[in-house]
Amino acid sequence: MAESHTEHAHHVTSDKVLNSTFLQLTGLMILTIVAARAPIDGPKLLPGFAGIFEGWSTLWFLTNAVALGIAIIKAVQVIRYFMGAQYASGLIRLYVVGGFIGFSLLYILFFDYVARPWEPVRGWENVPSTAFPRDARQDGGVPYPQFPSAKSE
């Protein structure tokens, strides 16, 4: 099938590509629901196979990764075929990729939150009103340094 029309400067995505992308996206949507719900309802749905589903709750990390993985595949398909990045020029693709690289850089912020327990700061010790207190380490390996009480004159 001729996907390019000489009288147009742009690429016209064929019906075949659009239809198959839509079917893929619908299939992936169903898969993501099944992947998220099956572990929970599995023993109820298939009582005879309860043993198989027992380990599921411990696989929370895996099910999270599956859900996000599917979402990323869906997003890539939408960007490639519906938004036409697959057939776009290098400059356009650079912008497409650039935005998502910029987004991933935001996650550098996690360094701060991960490291907070490592270096306690006076005045921030276990402040209950903050969602991310600079709390002491819970592993018991490193003792929490005690600051001298403020203004001990």
Partner: peptide, 23 residues
């Protein structure tokens, strides 16, 4: 179209993150 697809893209991530949290 690009704008509308972007709206769809955001929802593709919102759906599993809010409605399909695994146990």
């Amino acid at each position: 179209g690009l704008y509308w697809h972007f709206v769809d893209l955001v929802w593709i991530f919102l759906y599993p993150l809010f409605y399909l949290i695994p146990k």
